[in-house]
Amino acid sequence: MAHTADMLAERLTPRRADAFAAAQRRSVFVRRLRIALLAGIGLIALNIVLQNILRAPDVSGGTPEQPTGELERIVNPRFIGRDEDGTPFVVTADSAVRRPGSIVGLTELENPRLDYSMLGEGLEAGPGAVLANLGVYNPETRSLELNQAVNLSTRSGYRFETPSATIQLPQSRIVGEEPVYGEAPWGAIRAGGFEVHEEGRRVIFTDGVTTRLYLNERSDETRDTETGP
């Protein structure tokens, strides 16, 4: 390769020879530059792979490291979301606790409250009303599980007292599988379980139902005195 270049140089005039040599030097320089660029890209890729390996969590059955011992406690927590129709809801509580080793995302609430169109209005039933002593909010399924002294009221005028219930926010549905005492615009109910669908427009009571119907249209006062809490 070099032999042919010398032969050419002899025949060319000196000025053209210089130009040819310069061109040759430039192509060598470009070739070296290309190699350096490729090497640089390789290094960057290698670095990215290494970073990922170093930072990846340990997923083999364990959970991400939690502050050991001390509970993770949040005061006045707020969880905001929307149901399937796009209606917003806000879950609040006195405090939220996440226990070490608990499933990521599950948060235990003390005195949970819920601001949501399906639930009732006013002081006793509105967004400020405490729904239960304890609750567990799962941000992934957007469900609010209520435990201990659950007291729920729907905007359509139904009230439920039960030991536990779950509000499935995406579908605006409430499900209770324990004995319930309920009050409706038309009477009072006791049952083994209940479900609230369609924002309270359809309510199902199951597992043995007893009811007392108001035979005449009642105003709110007479109803309260008639059947107690």
């Binding site: 049952a191 427009r201 199951t206 139902v209 007893t210 119907l213």
Partner: peptide, 15 residues
Amino acid sequence: GPLDISANDLEVFDQ
């Protein structure tokens, strides 16, 4: 006197 009704299940069609 009141009208008391008992059953296995109850479904309310509010509207």
